[in-house]
Design a protein around this nucleic acid. Structure first.
Lengths: 225, 225
DNA sequence: CCTTTCCGATACGGAACCGTCTCGTATTTG
DNA sequence: CAAATACGAGACGGTTCCGTATCGGAAAGG
């Protein structure tokens, strides 16, 4: 949650004090002597970033100066904790790392529905949706941020889908002659497409089941039975 | 290809009350008297924008000042033709309006493959890909641009897909009990997802056929014949 | 020839931002 | 208490951009 990239001195772990835990997370200005940092500032700042993104502010338009104003903190405080906007955004991305519910494991079909339903609900939640849409789309311009987000969030979720699919293939529930990555896209992309590209209107109630079942059964008419 | 939002007279309808037509499209300098505008400037400017976007420049980073420098034109010339960056970008978007080949109409399956193959090839073409990725992702921050792009390009292409699907449903080639919009997403979204979200690496040769056939047949194993 | 408009170039004032630094104050350790 | 550090606020010089205006020259029509 808190900043990691600070230039700060203090390096890592001079000793094994209780603060070392905090230091281990990445930093610390040798937290010993003076006034300690107000942990609430980290929260306030990140929350402000999320609020502004939710309101449609572009990452480029989100200047450190404006952020300081809106969050009611001093610019020095920002630069004391983060080396720049990029480092700050990295922390914002990390705060979004919600992997969703663990699939129950009853069947591949049900697990896929669960996963897609999570995507659908997140697409409907205004906070997550707007923020995620903004971040995912704009972050691609900043290769460093995109790489971080991709490795932290996207890859993890994709691997979870792969696991479900592989088990389904082993169980004979899913064709084993298709590429796992292709299969994942067949299921996930339609939901992602609606959540990100289209307007949020088309995320109706039973969409997860509709997609999963349609992809499973195929859209070619079956003569009978 | 050339600008439309231009205040200029230039364009279409040189006669039939030239001023009226020009004024209708915007406002014009009543092109009659002085030195005519160099039509090549429109091309040069738009081409420069595309080149810069292709190089990864953000729309926000693409200032009118920088654009004038890179294109080798005067700032005044830009503001003489476009009211601002937004108007200019609208023309850039219009220049991307390539609807692709008309489907042959032999079968819904083949038409879908043709359409997806067009998306795949465009995703591979560095120019279109990088530009489109940048435009599509960043343009969402500018509601006006996004609306324009959506109405001009996206809607038209989606309608084409709908037409193919409806004909396929009428011909009994595609299940008629599914929503057309859902069907369109099942086919198109996987390709779009790979072209825009993933890296361009995963746009392999037979991908269009793979997607179409997998969605048609379904990914559940068929016992036998 | 004269007027009009375009062209590239550049100067201009005003604005926003960056990152650093300095205040005056608050809080904690020694 | 004194030293050290954090805090909000904001000054500071430097950069970039915006949109307008001006300039000398070029191309068209009258």
């Amino acid at each position: 949650m808190t900043g990691q990239a600070r230039p700060a001195a203090a390096g890592m772990c001079p000793e094994a004090t209780p603060e070392a835990a905090a230091e281990a997370a990445g930093r610390g200005p040798a937290a010993g002597r003076g006034r300690p940092r107000n942990a609430a500032v980290d929260t306030t700042v990140i929350e402000t970033v999320l609020r502004l993104l939710e309101e449609g502010v572009t990452i480029s338009d989100l200047s450190m100066e404006r952020l300081a104003r809106e969050a009611g903190v001093g610019k020095a405080t920002l630069y004391r904790r983060w080396a720049g906007k990029e480092e700050l955004m990295l922390d914002v991305l990390r705060s979004l790392d919600d992997t969703g519910p663990e699939p129950a494991g009853r069947s591949a079909r049900d697990d896929l529905v669960t996963m897609l339903e999570f995507l659908r609900r997140r697409g409907l939640a205004k906070r997550s949706s707007a923020v995620l849409r903004t971040v995912v789309t704009q972050v691609q311009s900043h290769p460093k941020l995109w790489k971080e987000y991709h490795e932290t969030v996207v890859t993890a979720r994709r691997e979870a889908v792969y696991a479900v699919l592989r088990r389904g293939m082993a169980d004979g529930e899913i064709r084993a002659d298709l590429d796992v990555e292709l299969l994942a896209d067949l299921f996930v992309a339609p939901m992602l497409s609606r959540a990100m590209l289209h307007e949020w209107k088309e995320l109706s109630e039973g969409l997860a089941e509709q997609i999963v079942d349609a992809v499973l059964e195929g859209v070619r008419p079956r003569p009978a039975g």
